[in-house]
């Protein structure tokens, strides 16, 4: 099974972060939400692998409190 990468994997994290903010810069909340939704779908298609996507959904889901 392919593993979701959860260790640092971005070449230039600050640059990517800035790009992400810049893409949203002139948008209002509704437009930004729509952009995020489209972005998720574009990335998911690029990944393609159902196992990796399942792990990604779990990684992003709110964490339950561990006791």
């Amino acid at each position: 099974m392919a593993e979701l990468i959860l260790t640092p994997n971005l070449d230039a994290p600050d640059d990517f972060y800035a790009d992400l903010l810049a893409t949203h810069e002139t948008l209002d909340k509704v437009e930004s939400d729509a952009l995020n939704a489209r972005l998720i779908l574009v990335l998911a298609n690029h990944i393609g692998d159902r196992d990796v996507l399942t792990q990604a959904l779990a990684a992003a889901a709110p964490k339950e409190d561990t006791q």
């Binding site: 939400d33 729509a34 939704a37 489209r38 998720i40 779908l41 574009v42 298609n45």
Partner: peptide, 20 residues
């Protein structure tokens, strides 16, 4: 609805979204 509309928007421009 947000995700559904995103699929439809993308489907207009990119083939990948059409199967969704």
């Amino acid at each position: 609805r947000l995700i559904r509309d995103a699929v439809l928007d993308l489907a207009e421009h990119y083939e990948f979204a059409r199967p969704l």
